[in-house]
Nucleic acid binder design. Structure first.
Lengths: 185, 185
DNA sequence: ATGAAGTTTCAAAAATTTCTGAAACTATAG
DNA sequence: CTATAGTTTCAGAAATTTTTGAAACTTCAT
């Protein structure tokens, strides 16, 4: 009934790799493999096809899809005359890049920023606290600056961004030169 | 004997936060907490002080330090007339930022790049494989470009970088404007 | 309303990761 | 060389995370 999308050695390697890397990227094996599969699939897949292809239980796939959707790395769609839910990965790789950056920021950076903001409001009571707070302030400033900057870069269109990156090498040369003149690095 | 560096509510909150976030950042609670403690400590600490302050076993701290050193987020030093090993976190927050980016790239990006390079050398046997490979090529190109660019940015001195980031807002406005003229986003 | 097709939830099993204490190891002072 | 202060390793215990199957739920066509 379900066309278990066959994995060739080539595609299997890709899928397994994403499964293994998953833990380093903060998702589990199931989620990593599902994403990889959707990424290379020429057509949207339904949950049963995914489960069968990857050899996971149906419920595991359901959990995994929930997680992938929360990362906005998969979207849901329906085919006319078919009640099942189909999934696909966003096609545009720049869009994926942005989405990922946004989500990572929300989950991995924002909570820390807000903890730091709170901590910086307290009145330090001892020398140690004063020192600790000064360090926290440095950290806060760097993160804030980096995220503001990243925001701005992110708002650029892929074309512009691509251009900027290609330009990067040149900018770097000039700046690297002035750095040397000023005796830094 | 060991001056268990007392944690005040302020510093404790910081340390516990890093412990909790650890898992999202790819390290365990112990490692997260140790790093936070070293980061705000006004003086280098020895392993026993760390273990006592945080309430971890001595061996757990030993493992944690090994991991932190492998991330280059802690360095070892000795005090005259004291045989114990002392640890401190790098002070310069820009340096930390770079180190982290380098290590993350080595662990989270390079393996994928090399898998992709291999996969792209294969001759696709079917339509599905041809499609999969095309997707992989897109992914490979994006990652490659992003890392090359990041490399370059990373080579800049903190001062230059800081200046560039502050400049960012202006660049963005100009570019955003041209984008609009060209009808992109 | 009923039932068939599909999806989600959830408690428990399986797997993995983290943490510990004891033993092994290392280096140095005497 | 020996005793001691310190560090690392490692096998098992504890904790956490992942995965599953069965039951509950939802939706829609009849």
């Amino acid at each position: 009934m379900n066309d278990k999308m066959e994995l060739t050695p080539l595609t299997e390697r890709f899928v397994l790799h994403f499964g293994e890397m998953g833990s380093r990227w903060g998702v589990n094996r199931t989620v990593g493999q599902i994403y990889a599969l959707l990424f290379i699939a020429p057509e949207p897949l339904n949950a049963d096809e995914i489960a069968e292809t990857l050899g996971f239980s149906r419920s595991n796939v359901s959990m995994g899809m929930k997680e992938l959707m929360s990362w906005r790395l998969a979207r849901l769609l329906h085919r006319p005359g078919d009640r099942r839910e189909y999934f696909e990965a966003p096609k545009d790789i720049w869009e994926i890049f942005r989405t990922l950056a946004e989500e990572k920021r929300k989950r991995e950076i924002e909570p820390t920023l807000s903890m730091l903001r709170d901590a910086l409001l307290e009145i330090p009571q001892t020398d140690n606290e004063r020192h600790a707070q000064a360090r926290m302030r440095e950290m806060h400033e760097l993160i804030e600056m980096a995220t503001v900057w990243f925001d701005e870069v992110q708002r650029l269109s892929p074309e512009t961004l691509e251009g900027l990156m290609r330009l990067g090498a040149k900018v770097q040369k000039v700046l690297g030169f002035t750095d040397k003149l000023r005796g830094k690095d």
